[in-house]
Design a protein around this nucleic acid. Sequence first.
RNA 1: GCGGGUGUAGCUCAAUUGGUAGAGCGCCAGCCUUCCAAGCUGGCUGUUGAGGGUUCGAGUCCCUUCGCCCGCUCCA
Length: 536
Amino acid sequence: MPSTESEPPSGNIMEQIVSLAKRRGFVYQASEIYGGIRGFWDYGPLGVLLKNNIRDHWWRAMVECPPVGPDGSPIDMVGLDSAIIQHPNVWKASGHVDNFNDPMVDCRETKARYRADHLWTAAAQVRRKNGNVETLGVFSVLSGDDAGDLFVKRVDKIARKTGGGEVVAPTDFVPFTKLSPAEMAEVVGPDAAQKGTLTEPRPFNMMMISYNGPLQDEDNKVYLRPETAQGIFTNYKNVLDTTRVRVPFGIAQIGKSYRNEVTPRNFIFRSREFEQMEMEFFCPPDQSILWYEFWRDERMKWWKSLGIRADNLKFRDHDDDELAHYSKACVDIEYKYPFTSPDFGELEGIAHRGCFDLTQHQQHSSQKLDYFDQELQLKLKESGASPEDVKAKSRYIPNVIEPASGLTRAVLVLLCEAYRCESRSGVEKFEYFAFKPQLAPIKAGIFPLVNKDGMPEIAQKLYMDLRQQFTCEYDPKQSIGKRYARMDEIGTPFSITVDGQTKDDQSVTIRHRDSQLQERVALEKVSTFLTEKLKA
RNA sequence: GCGGGUGUAGCUCAAUUGGUAGAGCGCCAGCCUUCCAAGCUGGCUGUUGAGGGUUCGAGUCCCUUCGCCCGCUCCA
């Protein structure tokens, strides 16, 4: 079968990756035995190891051993694990209730979909040449400054076809959402020719809803968080009060988030339940750009530290019209996924959120969330600022720089990046994952070359020793070649084999996954060998 | 939500005009085995995505539904 044009050039590779990931227990479709559930995925025995490794790597790089700041001193960073369900007002304050709840209207005729609040309607009236005013119907247009012009232009076209005359410009538009169902049925869609093709507005809730408590009424409605960030903002004051961190500092969090994505697609790229790694960095307003640039560069370094080729990563600055109204700057780190190639797709966003979130929460919660910067006060006094100036500037709402990335997206990127398909061991298409050793689910396979002459006993003992420090697997089954191949397939970087020589000189062979080459290492040095190789 | 494609064993796939669901790989057990998916013997695996219909008979035809892929649409 020739491939159709609609198929992307690398669509095949993605299928192979998904297939291998399933076959070796990395990612399963959620609820598969019931036919699956769109937008949800389960991480299998190897998948959870890989995910945990990435998670730990991030946590270490952000919380336990954060980068050294621009001024050469270590950065203050703490971790957090907030609840998935928060007080509903959190999401009102954050803007998610309003912005994530867009009623949509579909046009049955043109198949177009509109945000209901973007549709304005008005009666189309024409003053005919004889002076009579005739109404041609109720038309809708997309809201905006040019809505009036668009409306007149459109009605003018129809008027010409039906006898001409002058269009009476509407003095006011009525929002589509204010119409009764009967009135809606009379409206002509923005791109439609016939009336009554618009559906009634249907809610499009981006936030998943649940009920807190056994009563499922409106008062008990709660939301599953669509991002982990708000849990950080709501605890910002707690952290300041109960730890010794001072601005500038960061709070990091890893956890699940939920969004009713319109189109969950591309394997685990866009799913309705996903895991985020987010950090909110609180800094003085006048230092915010400095920190924004700092974190932008640091985050790119981190992705490269996972073993991702520089060619496959790039920055993409958001255009001004793409920025949220509160954001001063935002940049995405993008990856060249097989399904976007040759284009890139989003991997992490580094956003300058200004003081928006804390200001919002301060207003909605009536709690003071500003920060008194004693250091800055001192500095201002020393620089001879006026008392008024010192007072005004040393108390502020911190600005926030937010590097937010998807842990589950990181798993996807590593699967894509590590995937290899080459001719090997007499197999035409041998598939395997070449993970960086540090992130590989299993670090080493331990084998007796054959199951006799005392080899299994030595190998087992080695396994029992090593597994206390490293994630290892002992495998005495089938031929040595198959065991090597099995380990290669799941991305295990090292295979350690006890052979006939081991008994004589206490040494084993260690085989490298990528080169398939072996070296001999003393039994007692194996642990050191692995430690050395697993260093970042 | 719309349009197109698709769904058969853990994986890759086969099954003539509608006529008894198969193969390879894998996996398991045993034997053998001194380094790259080796060999021998035996074994496991399916409500053909699900539900309904037509038919003497459905993997195959029809309807509904679910998942996946592609393109639209949408996307804090």
